[in-house]
Write a protein that binds this DNA or RNA. Sequence first.
RNA 1: GGCGGCGUGGCCGAGCGGUUAGGCAGGGGCCUGCAAAGCCCCGUACUCCGGUUCGAAUCCGGACGCCGCCUCCA
Length: 463
Amino acid sequence: MIRLYDTARGEVRDLVLRSPGRVSMYVCGPTVDNLPHLGHGRFTLVWDVARRWFTFQGLRVHYVSNITDIDDKIIARAQAESRDEGDVVKQYEGEWWDAMGRLGVAEPDDAPHATDYIAQMVELIESFLERDVAYRTSDGVYFDVSSVPDYGLLAGQPLESLRAGARVEANDEKRSPLDFALWKNAKPDEPRWPAPFGDGRPGWHTECVVMSLDLLGEDFDLHCGGFDLKFPHHENERAQAVAAHKAFARHWDHNGWVMVGGEKMSKSLGNFTSLTELLEHTDPRAYRLLVLRSHYRSPIEVTRDTIADAERALARLDALARRFELPVLGGDRFELASAHGWEEESLELYERVVSLMNDDLNTPAAVGELFEAVSVANAAADDGQKVAARRLAQSINVLFGAMGLALLAGNQVVDADSDRLVQERDVARAARDWSEADRLRQALVERGWIVEDGASGTVIRRP
RNA sequence: GGCGGCGUGGCCGAGCGGUUAGGCAGGGGCCUGCAAAGCCCCGUACUCCGGUUCGAAUCCGGACGCCGCCUCCA
C-alpha cells in the first residue's frame, strides 16, 4: 500500500484509488511566458519521480500535465516585444520541452493546452451564470466563492478568516475580494474568443478543472502542484468542481518550493534562476539527485554549493556503474519491479527502499539506503564476492532507475590519439617503465582525461 | 490579524521514545610502482527553558529565531 500526504486532510494517508491498479494524476503545468525556472524543474522532477515509482510498483499511471498558453503575462510579453502571442507561446513552450528532455522528465501521457478547451470552459461558465454561482461585472465574469460551503478546505481556513486577511481590492464590483475571474473581457488589441457573455479569454483557474475532468474523468486520483498553488489556484479549481456537481480529485499533494538565500524563489520577487541556464553548465542528473535527497514537501536551496555537492555524490554512483559495467536506465524507460529478480541482499535492499518510498515518497532516506548499499557492493567486490557484489550493484542501478536517475559508466568517445596513449601506457606499465607510464599519464591528463589503472589496464574518463 | 511549516555535527539531509541514518567536505590508515577508484577508522549533532518518562532530537508547555500562504506565482 502506498501512503501519500493529502493536502485536503493535512495528513499522510493511504492512496485510495478510483480503480485498483490504476493511478490518474494531474500535475499543474507551466504558463509559457518565459524560460522555465528552477522551481519548474523541481516540481516536474518531484512528480516525475512519483509517476515512475507508481509505475515501478505495478500501477498503470495516466499522467496529465497542462500547458497554459493564454494568460495576462503572455499578452504582456507579446505587447512589450511587439510580437504575436502565438509566437511567444511557441518559443517558450519549445524551451519548456527542451528543458524537460534534458532533465529526463518523461513526457506526460497528455499535455493539454488551455486554448484547445475554450469552448468547454465557456460552457461551464455559462452554467455557473445560469445557476447564479457566477456573476458578470464590467470587466468579466466572476465566481461567487460563498456558493461553496466548504470553500477554504485546501487553504485550511474557513472563508471568513480568508476574507479577513484579504488585501484591499481595487475592483469594487466584486461581491467578495476572494471571488475570482472565470472570464476576462478582451480589451482592444487583446486576443479574444467569442462567448455569450462577451468576447474575451478564460481566467486561469478554469482551464485545469475542465481539462482534468475531460482527460481523467470525474473522481480522478491525484492532483498535484507546487505549494503555492494550494491557494488560491487549487482551492478555486475545487470550488468550480463542487459548483458543477462533479467529483474532483481524491487526493491533493503539493511539493515544496525552491529557495534562494532563504527566500522563496518566485516571479514576483524576481529572484529566479532559469532552469535553462542551470542545465547549460550542470549535469541535469545532479539536479535530480539534489531533489531526491530532500523530501518533496520540504523547501530546497538550489545553489552552486548544493549542486556541486550533488555532482560529487553522483560521481560515486557513476564509479559504481563503471566498476560493474551497469546498463543505462532511466530516461524514457520506466522500470518495473516485477521485471527484475530480487534475491538475498538485493531483496533486503529492495524491501527497505520500497517501505521508505511507499511511505510518502521518502526519497532522501531511500537514497541513503542506496548509498549504503554502494559501499556494501564495493566492499563485497574488493573481498572477491563477485556474484553478491554484482547482484547488489544491479539492484542499486534498477532502484535509481526507478526514480529516473541514470547511472552512467561513461561510454565516452575516446579519440584515436588518446586511445594510442592508453595503449602505450599499458605497454610501459607491463614493462614496469614507470617514468614512461607517468609521462603518458601526464599527456592524457593534459588532454582532459582522468586516468585510472584497473585490473584490465588503463581506463580514461572525463571529469 | 488568521492559517501552516521549519530550527539536527563544517555543509546538505533522514529521523516520529531506546539503533552508528546517508552523502559531501576534513583527518588517519589499507590497497596501488606512484596515482585514481575502492575499503576501513575518526569528528559524537539535535535553538533555548521547563515538564512527562527508567530513558527524548523524537511527546507536552513556554520562549526565541527563520520561512511561507491569505495577491500573479511551480
